[in-house]
């Protein structure tokens, strides 16, 4: 819970957290090393006092997580969105069994999503069924830029991906978090294209597609798609980290998202341990759009902030917000209208 200066409580759901292991012992090859180092460069967008030494950043403890997210970070419920990266790390960058252990330690505070990779074809589909039975995942994180053997990525519209999406729907994996990353074949096309989200969102209207990093670096393409597809959501991870170093840019991004998607389809995510929820939330609560932006899209309201910080994710994940008995009842089945149409 975050308590405002005037005493109002805000329920916080962090829509994107990880317990990762990028330690030297777990690194398989140069790619694994470059990956965690690149992550560390992103980490440096944090305010100085929140920057960790590299060694700690490679592998932090569960106690670090508890302290940074639950105790200091105001977070009531944290949603794990794991990345496997089995070609880079021996036991995976994220490990779903470890996540499950952590969830059991924190009943009601942790939601663990899983992942699937369509390139595992039939075997992976079976594995998915077993995983869902074992871990009761309510959703998955899809990392289309993941390397696997010779493959440098995949598309949501690949034939096997369709089969996995169909099975996800059958298994009740309702919330599909998609990280839109580069290096997708064919390489000569725009690899950051969010167009495949458009197609599958139309084909699977019962699934929610939470596009992490709101489609960056193709924010405007993402906005046009999201405006047309009511089951497409924006995950603020990465974008919100700019609130410290470039508040003006972040204001432009959030005003753009509010214009095209409206306040009901934007989800806060710290991407912990890339960034800590504490400072992100504190700054977001204080955010006021500059006058020229506010004139175009309206000022961001306190109600909108509350939705983004917790209520929207609570609706998608059936999380009960204390003191609000009706919350979560619709389980994301109510699709808000798009805030604007492209036409």
């Amino acid at each position: 819970m975050f308590t405002t200066k005037s005493g109002e409580k805000i329920f916080i759901v962090d829509g994107h957290v990880t317990l990762w292991d990028g330690s030297d012992e777990n690194i398989k090859n140069r790619y694994g090393e470059e990956f965690i180092k690149c992550f560390y460069d992103y980490h440096k967008l944090s305010p100085q006092e929140y920057i960790w030494p590299y060694k700690k950043y490679q592998k932090y403890s569960e106690e670090d997580f508890e302290q940074d997210v639950f105790q200091n970070g105001y977070v009531d419920v944290a949603i794990f969105n794991p990345q496997f990266l089995g070609d880079f790390y021996y036991s995976g960058f994220s490990n779903v069994a470890r996540n499950e252990g952590f969830r059991k330690k924190h009943p009601g505070q942790v939601i663990t999503n899983g992942y699937w990779d369509p390139r595992n074809e039939e075997v992976g589909l079976k594995q998915l069924e077993e995983d869902v039975q074992r871990y009761k995942w309510p959703g998955v994180k899809l990392y289309t830029a993941e390397w696997k053997g010779d493959s440098k990525g995949w598309k949501l519209t690949d034939p096997w991906s369709y089969r996995y999406l169909e099975r996800s729907q059958e298994l009740g994996l309702k919330n599909i978090h998609v990280h839109k990353g580069p290096t997708i074949r064919p390489l000569n096309k725009d690899a950051f294209d969010v167009g495949d989200v458009d197609e599958v969102a139309s084909m699977f209207p019962k699934l929610n597609f939470i596009v992490e990093h709101c489609g960056l670096p193709r924010l405007s393409d993402f906005c046009y798609i999201a405006a047309q597809e009511p089951n497409v959501y924006a995950g603020l991870a990465v974008a919100i980290a700019l609130i410290h170093t470039r508040p003006r840019y972040f204001s432009e991004i959030i005003s753009e998202l509010l214009f095209w998607l409206g306040p009901d389809r934007i989800l806060f995510g710290s991407d912990y341990a890339l960034w800590q929820p504490k400072w992100l939330i504190e700054r977001f609560i204080d955010l006021e759009l500059p006058e020229d932006l506010a004139a175009e899209t309206g000022q961001i309201t306190f109600e909108a902030k509350k939705k983004i910080l917790g209520e929207n994710a609570a609706r998608l994940y059936n999380i009960e917000i204390p003191g609000r008995n009706e919350s979560g009842a619709q389980a994301g089945s109510q699709k808000p209208e798009p805030a604007a149409s492209v036409a």
Binding site: L216, L219, T245, F259
Partner: peptide
């Protein structure tokens, strides 16, 4: 408004690139 979005995206990417390059 539509073409403003295009410019903002480019600027955002430019900022991110610069920050990452500096750290790297």
């Amino acid at each position: 408004r539509q073409i403003t979005g295009v410019r903002r995206t480019a600027e955002f990417n430019g900022f991110l690139c610069r920050s990452l390059l500096t750290e790297r």
